[in-house]
Design a protein around this nucleic acid. Structure first.
Length: 773
RNA sequence: GGGUUCAUAGUCCAGUUGGUUAUGACGUCGCCCUUACACGGCGAAGAUCCAGGGUUCGAAUCCCUGUGGACCCA
């Protein structure tokens, strides 16, 4: 029989046809029947090319989760969304058009942002499709759509009514570059070289001088106290006295506080509003009057006297100079200071008192610990990231932002008495331009209102994703079937934001955990283990890689190279060599495509042996798939396919299959077993490499797609795997012997078959052309 | 300072409850067109399993200490 497959290598171009077939037949449509499996897919932010190759690998694996569930017989809801809220597009737009957001007409600015997002999004969707994602593209959602934003606002209104939201004026993390308050979760820390200045404070009515070391001398004007450790005998006689702030020439009291470390600097610390979070705590505890020294524009305020109007950094330089000129500096040290910076804009955080909206979270911590402990984490160790974060929560979540491209806070204030009013839930509101939906102030009866101008922190949107995909508040029937979702796949760097905030919000709104499992992936790093960044030039763009080698190659690389939860290295060369496995699979199939599919009731020893090994692979794969760890099935299948099936079994039964001197029964058993093994392998590989397996499946075994099939089950054959070692060793011995004797592999040779392999003798003889004797 | 985690050939990685000769791949070198595949086959070289100590008949594996790296928190 002519082989059905003619080409000698898998051509990734075929992926396009298959993709079209999937789309035309709506192969992955979700029907809420039977056992439902819901994935709370992370909506990617379309930040433009190159997309991070680690992210592409991540999505490939999320698709494997979806396909695994489908092949386990579940109805899978695999939503596709695009995250479009937030800072990056605003900054991109400012740069692209050389404008400043706060100086641009709001409606005009939003339009520019939306246009930019549309372009970037189209490209992103195309990459996701090309990767072979079996998601619900026909209904993909955007987090800036009217519907999504209405949901964010509705949930806000619900929480407001539950009394979980309040307004407070308190010192807050402020990013002066983007001009907005940010939450603790959005801060990162960097070691930045800075000067530690040892300043001389004169003690009043004494000729003594107190040395105070600080990295923030520009805040001298906001100094309201000096603290020393009560057990520090060096300062005992200064306690209770006043010190004169250098340059500023104002008096402050010297107090005791245990937080002053004896080892740091001179042991005396100046308390200013606000150098860091510790200052905030001290101001509260010691009931000090705050002085706002830094304004929203990142410049010193008028209280800084001669330094007013200078940027913080300039003011620092200038005041150090002045201190030195007046002989008020003992010394200056250069140190690396761990500085809080904004994750997004990289600006150093200033702590400035601002009036913001807060969502209560402190009182939910214990409840969330309890819910968190019930969520199954893959891998389990990453649960610790959540638990550590819960331990460190000290303040409520500031949710308002002074930005434009986000969901508007749906509030109107009475023009007369400033009483805030919230509208009816269910609609999307834009208070900065919409007329007030409230006609009369509930407090004073006035009829004129002013809309709130601020927007929400984008995590307010993202944290309701499981509610959005299950149509919370829209379709009660659908919601019941799809909420809570099954699994949240995401990367480990956003556990303290996206994962945490989602549990918090869903608990507050639904009293339930949003999903029963969380699947946490590591970062993609470069081939030397360094973080990829545009400035280092070690970024790999996944798009050309996928185009060159095909999505299946990329996916198989991702599965076989990434151990769940750990960081993984990316190199184009590694991806390229992965392609060889697909070639191997292709050629095995090409060989088998020359043999008709037959049924056979009887199998022979070699067949029993390989089926027994196959059974082992099936069981190992099941374990890996159950844990959504695709490293396990991909490596186990590759090793079996290459090193046992192709190298030994196929060679052993080739003679039988071509039927030179074998009975029909023997021949059929071989062909039956060959097809049985290959079809099983294709099914096991289908979630990992959906294109090539579907093509081969439809060419060899069925007129329907492989992706509607179920996983093969373990058959519990008699265990023949003990023969693996003797068989492979014997074959190796023969090959070596022939080599030694300079024989070709098809040449005849005289060699004794070991006793334990006697039952395989006929196949082995044919395989090696052994002389009987 | 606290936490999590990692350390196995030139490189990447496996190694279940301790148990003969430590897995596989990439790369390197040699030989080979063999009725699926040269995008292939066969073979070879390459590891003091980070260091030190302990438990044990026996440790890459368990325990302690240290060193080095990554990440998180204060």
């Amino acid at each position: 029989m002519e082989p059905k497959i003619k080409e000698t290598a898998w051509n990734p171009e075929i992926e396009k046809q298959i993709l079209k077939q999937w789309e035309d037949s709506r192969a992955y449509e979700f029907k809420p029947q039977g056992e439902v499996f819901v994935i709370d897919t992370p909506p990617p932010y379309p930040s433009g090319r190159p997309w991070h190759i680690g992210a592409a690998a991540h999505y490939a694996q999320i698709d494997m989760i979806a396909r695994t569930a489908r092949m386990s017989g579940k109805s899978v809801l695999f939503p596709i969304g695009i995250d479009r809220n937030g800072l990056p597009v605003e900054m991109y737009t400012e740069k692209k058009h050389n404008i400043r957001m706060h100086e641009t007409d709001r409606a005009e600015f939003l339009k520019l942002c939306a246009t930019a997002l549309d372009d970037l999004e189209a490209e992103m969707i195309q990459i996701m499709k090309n990767l072979g994602l079996s998601g619900n593209f026909s209904e993909y959602y955007r987090t800036d759509s009217e519907q999504y934003r209405a949901l964010t606002q509705t949930t806000f209104i619900e929480l407001w009514k539950k009394g979980l939201i309040y307004i407070a004026n308190r010192p807050n993390n402020y990013d002066w570059i983007t001009g907005t308050t940010i939450a603790d979760a959005e801060i990162t820390y960097e070691e930045i070289p800075t000067k530690l200045v040892y300043m001389k404070f004169k003690i009043k009515d004494s000729d003594k001088v107190l040395i105070i070391a600080s990295t923030r001398p520009e805040l001298l004007c906001a100094c309201q106290a000096i603290i020393v450790n009560p057990e520090d005998e060096r300062h005992v006689d200064s306690i209770g006295k006043s010190a004169i702030i250098p340059v500023i020439n104002r008096e402050v009291q010297i107090k005791t506080h245990p937080s002053a470390e004896k080892e740091f600097g001179s042991g005396a610390v100046m308390v200013c509003s606000y150098g860091d979070q510790n200052d905030v705590a001290l101001f509260r505890e010691l009931k000090l009057q705050e002085i706002v020294a830094i304004g929203k524009n990142g410049r010193m305020t008028e209280v800084a006297g001669p330094y007013a109007g200078l940027k913080v950094k300039q003011a620092r330089e200038k005041i150090i100079e002045d201190l030195q000129n007046q002989g008020l500096v003992e010394k200056v040290e250069s140190i690396n200071h761990r500085t809080p910076i904004s994750e997004r804009s990289k600006a150093p955080i200033e702590i400035i008192p601002m009036e913001e909206y807060y969502l209560k979270q402190k009182e939910s911590v214990e409840k969330i610990k309890e819910l968190g402990s019930k969520i199954v984490f893959h891998p389990p160790m990453h649960k610790q990231i959540l638990m550590n974060w819960l331990e460190s929560i000290t303040i409520d979540w500031p949710i308002s932002r002074r930005r434009f491209y986000g969901t508007e806070i749906p509030i109107w204030y009475c023009k007369k008495c400033s009483e805030p009013h919230i509208p009816e839930p269910g609609k999307y509101y834009k208070p900065w331009k919409d007329p007030s939906p409230i006609s009369k102030c509930t407090k004073c009866g006035a009829t004129e209102f002013v809309g709130e101008e601020r927007t929400f922190d984008t995590w307010m949107d993202s944290s309701v994703s499981p509610l959005y995909v299950s149509k919370y508040g829209h379709d009660e029937e659908f919601f019941k079937k799809t909420y809570p979702a099954t699994i949240r796949p995401q990367s480990k760097d956003i556990v303290r934001t996206w994962l945490y905030y989602t549990i918090l919000r869903c608990e507050q709104l639904t009293r339930q955990t949003p999903w029963s499992e969380a699947w946490i992936m590591g970062y993609g790093v470069d081939e030397h283990g360094a973080k990829m960044s545009k400035s280092k030039g070690n970024v790999i763009d996944p798009l050309p890689v996928i185009q060159k080698f095909g999505a299946d190659t990329f996916r198989f690389w991702s599965a076989s190279e990434i151990n769940l939860g750990y960081d993984f290295r990316c190199s184009e060369q590694k991806i390229e060599t992965t392609k060889k496995f697909l070639s191997k699979l292709w050629n095995i199939s090409r060989f088998l495509s020359g043999f008709q599919i037959v049924k056979s009731d009887k199998v022979f020893p070699a067949d029993k042996w390989i089926l027994s090994e196959l059974d082992k692979v099936v069981s190992e794969c099941k374990k890996g798939f159950d844990d959504y760890n695709f490293f396990v099935p991909s490596t186990s299948i590759r090793e079996f396919t290459w090193n046992l099936f192709a190298a030994h079994y196929i060679e052993m039964v080739k003679g039988r299959a071509y039927s030179d001197s074998f009975s029909k029964e023997e021949r059929d058993a071989a062909i039956f077993t060959l097809h049985k093994v290959l079809s099983t392998l294709l099914l096991l590989l289908a979630p990992i490499t959906p294109f090539i397996t579907d093509y081969l499946w439809q060419t060899l075994y069925s007129d329907k797609t492989i992706h509607k099939e179920k996983f093969p089950q373990q058959e519990n054959h008699e265990d023949w795997t003990g023969f693996t070692k003797p068989i492979t060793e014997f074959n190796s011995n023969v090959w070596n012997k022939k080599k030694e004797q300079n024989l070709s592999l098809k040449d005849s040779i005289e060699m004794a078959i070991p006793d334990e392999l006697q039952q395989f003798a006929k196949d082995l003889q044919a395989m090696h052309n052994l002389k009987s004797g």
